[in-house]
């Protein structure tokens, strides 16, 4: 029992379950799933579908955070990749052609990869602090996206493009499969290879890792590149959902939601140990919370307030000092003392 309680996934999962239970009590329809035309519908299905962009971005963010970094530019990269893809489709004579759509997606993601590589270059090679290095692109990226769309909101009609966010495969939203694919690929790459543990080593102690022969620079660089690519796909999904490239609104605040999802999932912002499963739970928690807030009839603009409350609760729960105080009160655990430095 104690082991379960102290497992890093315990609190994230409890938080998600609590939200689902509360929602179900408030509106029993929450967990009901109906079938229409062989497609599943319901609040939970919506959560699975709507969470896809955040899922992709959060997975990338998790890898970057594990290296002791942070990527503020993901929202801007989403805007750029969406703008690129939609501009290609809008300018093409055959927007419904699958080939056109694939080229558009490919180019959008490649541009995102380049932006990610740029971030990685600043952090890993030039040695700029991650917050600032990615702040540069966060500031400039949306401007670039606006320039690509010529300052307008580009809208398109393209059935294959629309399918990505709005289509269904074997009764489930296609976007959900994109999420699953991203989760599986990230988990395989990080955990089936040694990349995950090497990334953690770099995040925990960069200098020791370098001296142990870990190619820290490459790992950090790769993390930002991966974050860029994932944000690029997220941008495609986002534009596919609204079939428009809105450089200002695309991915707005998503960097913050993603950071929150990662932290909720039990990965410390100080870098090091990370869990893919935790991040997945974190993303679903946030998406469920959003759905709850919407259901409560709170204007979506006020939603940040609730997120703020959640953030504060989460960081307080993670806080050593508070834990120490609680533990002292309960006399269950020894209070933490400063590290023995002799």
């Amino acid at each position: 029992m104690k082991k379960i309680l102290r497992h890093r996934m315990f609190w994230p999962v409890i938080a998600l379950l609590a939200l689902i239970v509360l929602n179900t009590i408030a509106r029993p329809s929450f967990i009901s799933i109906t079938v229409q035309n062989g497609q599943l519908y319901g609040a939970l299905i919506d959560i699975l579908r709507n969470s896809a962009p955040l899922m992709l971005v959060s997975l990338g963010m998790m890898i970057v955070i594990a290296t002791r970094g942070i990527d503020l530019s993901v929202g801007a990269i989403m805007a750029v990749s969406g703008a690129v893809a939609l501009t290609i489709i809008a300018d093409s004579p055959s927007p419904d052609d699958l080939g056109t759509v694939l080229v558009a997606i490919l180019v959008g993601v490649l541009v995102s990869l380049l932006l990610g590589i740029w971030n990685g270059f600043l952090v890993a090679v030039v040695g700029v602090q991650p917050i600032i290095a990615t702040l540069v692109l966060m500031l400039a990226g949306r401007g670039v996206a606006l320039l690509i769309t010529g300052g307008f909101i580009t809208t398109i009609n393209s059935a294959p493009y629309k399918f990505m966010a709005q289509g269904y495969v074997i009764g489930l939203p296609f976007a959900f499969f994109v999420s699953i694919a991203a989760i599986v690929i990230v988990a395989l790459i990080e955990r089936r290879t040694a990349l995950g543990v090497l990334t953690e080593a770099v995040g925990i102690n960069p200098e020791a890792s370098r001296l142990a022969g870990v190619r820290a620079r490459g790992i950090i660089w790769g993390a930002y590149a991966a974050s860029g690519v994932l944000a690029g796909f997220a941008g495609i999904l986002y534009t596919s959902n609204i079939m428009a490239a809105d450089a200002n609104a695309a991915g707005l605040y998503i960097e913050l939601y993603a950071i929150l999802a990662v932290v909720l999932g039990g990965t410390s912002l100080a870098g090091g140990k990370f869990t893919v499963a935790g991040t997945v739970v974190g993303v679903f928690t946030i998406e469920t919370l959003r759905s709850t807030i919407l259901f409560l009839g709170v204007p979506s603009a006020v939603a940040p307030l609730f997120l703020a409350i959640v953030v504060v609760i989460v960081v307080l729960v993670q806080s050593q000092r508070l834990r120490g105080a609680v533990a002292k009160l309960a006399q269950a655990l020894r209070p933490k003392k400063p590290e023995v430095a002799r």
Binding site: V197, L198, A201, I204, A212, V214, R215, G272
Partner: peptide
């Protein structure tokens, strides 16, 4: 410059080999 504190003893021991073999 030596230990990677939040990793386990096992992970710290194989870190050198693993780094050498590549990710």
């Amino acid at each position: 410059e030596g230990i990677v504190g939040d990793l386990t003893v096992a992970e710290n021991i194989v870190l050198g080999i693993q780094a050498k073999r590549g990710a």
